[in-house]
Every structure is written in structure tokens, then in C-alpha cells.
Design a protein around this nucleic acid. Structure first.
Length: 299
DNA sequence: CAGAGATCCTGCAAGC
DNA sequence: TGCTTGCAGGATCTCT
């Protein structure tokens, strides 16, 4: 599933292929892919057509393509959801099975949005002032629909102490807090489990009961885990096909927690467990990552 | 208002 | 063999 490292890999690829290009036409193959665009499909197509790409940016798992013409500028906001892919294909190449949106470019290539499970989509948005811009730095702009998303650990404006403060204010399980994109962005189920394992924290621990020091360790773990994934994700990048969906080394990545139920903890040798949580799976080591009740009983 | 849980969606895999 | 059921999960909506 695309989390920050996968989305960043896509962003870099899109930047290479799209900046300077003009979108000559847009075709929506599945209306659900543009459901978040307020003005509806015709508005999206009309406003996007003829615009040039000036940049590709990202915050957390949100990606946006800056587009403009002589009189109008906007952000084409892209969320990959669970299975979204942004592909650059030769014009006229056979359609992909789950093609949702196609944008023709002025270099005879096509930008394609392919998404099996249709949780992702495109919408065109205006900009607003970035509330996360640090004082003294020029106030960057962000798409209105991304303004509520917190910075991610790779953002120059990322502020560890601010995140620790927000976590400490939460009477909620720490894994839920890690997945809350308004606290820290970019983390999904897989890297949440990896970071919790690395920081030796059980996901059910209540955030406000965890020490500031431990929360800093957790944020550091998130950063390291995602940085390592990004390193791998960036290597097998095909020149023509911008592939998101994990194929770029995703499964070759060595995971220490996610998917390892029944296997031995690589740190202590205990048998890893799987639990259901928030309608999804959580993987952890019962010895390294003590359940809240165990922690409390020890004082 | 904050937190918890349901919901959307499709393809694959497991089980009867 | 063929059907049903469960599972995967990011973001948003609804309910408490």
C-alpha cells in the first residue's frame, strides 16, 4: 500500500516526466476517481485542459501537481488510496485494466491514473496559506484540501516537539495516533507497525501515558523506517513507467513486524503475534512490545 | 469536541 | 469443482 516512501518515489518520477509539459486533453474513464472534485467531472476536465505543469509536490501521502496557464493556477491533488498508480505511458499504448483517468501530454506521452480498488482519485483545488510554514520562512502555499494534513518527517517544517505535544494530548492508543494524518503524516499501517516494533512500543499504549523521551524515539523510528524504505523504493524506477504500487522493491524490503505473525522476532526470538485493530492487522512482538496492562502492572 | 467504529471497493485466497 | 466468506486498508462519515 502506498505510504510516504512510495508516494515520494512517484513524486520524483512525475517531476522528471511532467514539469514543463502541457496537458492537451483529459478523459475520465471512471467517475468515482474524480468524486472529490467539487465542480464535477466537466469542470475538472475543462480547467485542467491546456494547463502547463510547473511542479510536483507532496505532503504525507498527498501528492499534487502544480498547473497553470496565463490566467489561472491550481493544484491537481492526487491521492493514491490503497492501489492507485500514476503511470507515464506512450500515447496509444494499450489501456490498463483499471484505468480511471487519462491526461494527454504535449510530448505524445500520457499520464494515466490506474486504481483497482478506487479509494484514490484526482481533484483540482485552489491554494491556501500553509499553516505549518515556520516563522521567518516564506509562507508556502498548499492546496485547500491538504491544509489539514500535518507535516511529515521529511518536510523542512517538521517540528518534533510539536508532534510530541500533540501526541501527549491524545487519550487514545498510540497506533491510532500514528495513523492520524493531522498529527504526523505519511504513516500507514505497515510503517506504523514497523516503527512501533523498532521503538519497542505496543500499539495499544495510551499516547498521553508515554514519556516524551519515548515519543521522540518513536518519531525517530518512523523517520528511519520510512527513510530506509525510500532508499529501496527509489532504485527500481523505470524510465517510462512511474510505478507506485509497491512493485518498486516494496516486497523485497525486509520488514521486521508487518506480516510476520508466527515468525521469530528478529531482536529477541519470541514468536510474533497478529491482532485485529481498527479493522486492520497489527503485528508485534509480545516480549519487546509489552501490552499496556503489563506496563502498568510494573508501575 | 474528541474518540471509536463503520464504510467504501475489488481481487484474491481460503474453506466448506 | 464452485460457491461463499474473509481479508487487505486510507480517509471520511456517523455515532456516542
Amino acid at each position: 500500500m502506498p505510504e510516504l516512501p512510495e508516494v515520494e518515489t512517484v513524486r520524483v518520477g512525475l517531476e522528471t516526466h511532467l514539469v514543463g509539459r502541457v496537458i492537451t486533453s483529459v478523459d475520465v474513464a471512471h467517475p468515482r476517481a474524480v468524486r472529490r472534485h467539487a465542480g464535477g467531472e466537466p469542470d475538472l476536465v475543462g480547467r485542467l485542459t491546456g494547463k502547463a505543469v510547473t511542479g510536483v509536490r507532496r505532503r504525507g501521502k498527498y501528492l499534487w501537481i502544480d498547473v497553470s496557464d496565463a490566467t489561472d493556477r491550481a493544484a491537481l491533488v492526487v491521492h493514491l488510496g490503497m492501489s492507485g498508480q500514476m503511470l507515464i505511458a506512450r500515447g496509444g499504448a494499450p489501456d490498463h485494466t483499471h484505468l480511471r483517468v487519462r491526461a494527454l501530454l504535449d510530448d505524445e506521452n500520457e499520464l494515466r491514473f490506474v486504481d483497482q480498488r478506487t479509494f484514490g482519485g484526482w481533484h483540482l483545488d485552489d491554494y491556501t496559506v500553509d499553516a505549518y510554514a515556520p516563522a521567518g520562512m516564506p509562507a508556502a502555499d498548499v492546496p485547500v484540501s491538504v491544509a489539514h494534513i500535518a507535516t511529515d518527517p521529511f518536510d523542512p517544517a517538521f517540528d518534533v516537539e510539536r508532534v510530541v505535544n500533540r501526541m501527549r494530548a491524545k487519550h487514545s492508543e498510540i497506533k491510532r495516533v500514528l495513523l492520524d494524518q493531522t498529527v504526523i503524516s505519511g504513516v500507514g499501517n505497515i510503517y506504523a507497525d514497523e516503527a512501533l516494533w523498532r521503538a519497542r512500543l505496543h500499539g495499544a499504549r495510551i499516547a498521553e501515558t508515554i514519556s516524551r523521551k519515548k515519543l521522540r524515539e518513536l518519531i525517530e523510528a518512523v523517520t528511519v523506517v520510512m527513510a530506509e524504505a525510500l532508499k529501496v523504493g527509489g532504485t527500481s524506477f523505470d524510465a517510462l513507467y512511474v510505478n507506485v504500487n509497491g512493485q518498486s522493491g516494496y516486497f523485497e524490503r525486509s520488514l521486521n513486524a508487518y506480516g510476520r505473525a508466527g515468525e521469530l522476532c528478529r531482536r529477541c526470538g519470541a514468536i510474533m503475534r497478529r491482532e485485529s485493530f481498527m479493522n486492520r492487522s497489527s503485528f508485534y512482538c509480545p516480549r519487546c512490545q509489552r501490552r499496556p496492562s503489563d506496563v502498568e502492572s510494573r508501575g
